[in-house]
Amino acid sequence: MKNRLILFFFFIVKLTIAQVSDFKSIDFTRADNIAKLNANASLKNLPLLAHNLTYKLDNDAEKFRAIYTWVCTNIKGDLNQDNKVSKQRKRFKNDSLAYLKWNNDYQKTAFKKLLKHKKTMCTGYAYLIKELCFLVDIDCKMVNGYGRSTTANVTSLDLANHSWNAVKLNNKWYLCDATWSSGYFVNDVFIKDYNLGYFLTDPTLFAKNHYPLDKKWLLDDTLITSDYSASPIVYGETFTHKIIPIGPSNLNTTIKKNDTLAIRFKSLNTLETKDISLIKYIGIKTIPFKITDLKNENGLVSFNYKFKSKGVYDVHLKIKNDIVATYTVSVIKE
Rank of each mutant, 00 (worst) to 15 (best):
H241P: 08
T69G: 01
T73M: 10
N250S: 10
N161D: 09
L219P: 02
T222C: 13
D220Q: 02
L175A: 13
F28N: 09
P232C: 01
I67Y: 01
S182C: 03
I224Q: 07
N104R: 08
Y194V: 14
A160E: 11
I319S: 04
W180N: 09
K56I: 09
T29E: 11
K44N: 13
M121E: 15
F190I: 03
L132R: 05
S149T: 03
T54C: 15
N304H: 12
K130I: 05
D275Q: 04
F239M: 05
K14M: 14
L169T: 04
K266M: 14
L157F: 02
L317N: 03
N3Q: 10
D60V: 01
T201L: 07
R30Q: 14
K24G: 14
T225D: 14
G247H: 11
K90D: 12
L205S: 09
D78M: 06
A262M: 07
C140L: 06
K116I: 08
P248L: 11
L317I: 00
D78A: 03
T286A: 01
V324Y: 11
V331N: 04
D220E: 04
C72V: 07
Q107F: 11
I291W: 02
L53Y: 06
I75Y: 13
K108P: 00
L53F: 03
N161W: 02
H162M: 11
D22V: 05
N269Y: 04
L100E: 15
L271Y: 00
A178V: 05
R30E: 15
T150Q: 15
A325H: 07
H51W: 15
F303K: 05
N144G: 12
K333Q: 12
N104A: 05
K208L: 13
K168H: 10
A166Y: 10
S309H: 07
K256A: 07
S86V: 07
I26T: 04
L79V: 09
I191G: 09
I17Y: 12
H241S: 04
Y146L: 00
F92S: 06
I243Y: 03
A66P: 00
S25V: 12
L5H: 02
F111H: 09
S149D: 04
F190R: 00
W164K: 06
E237G: 10
K257C: 13
D95K: 11
K295F: 07
V315L: 03
N94M: 09
K56V: 09
S182L: 05
D188Y: 08
Y198L: 09
M1W: 15
K44P: 07
G299K: 02
E272T: 11
D60F: 05
G236S: 06
D78C: 07
L135W: 09
D82R: 15
K14Q: 15
T29D: 13
L79S: 10
S330Q: 12
N52D: 15
G145W: 00
L132P: 08
I244S: 05
S96M: 12
I319N: 05
K216M: 10
V71M: 02
E131Y: 03
K172V: 10
Y55L: 11
L114C: 05
T123D: 14
L169Y: 01
I224H: 04
L79P: 11
Y228C: 08
Y127S: 13
T273K: 13
N45K: 08
T270W: 09
F185A: 13
Q81G: 08
N252Q: 13
A98K: 00
G283D: 04
V301M: 01
F92C: 12
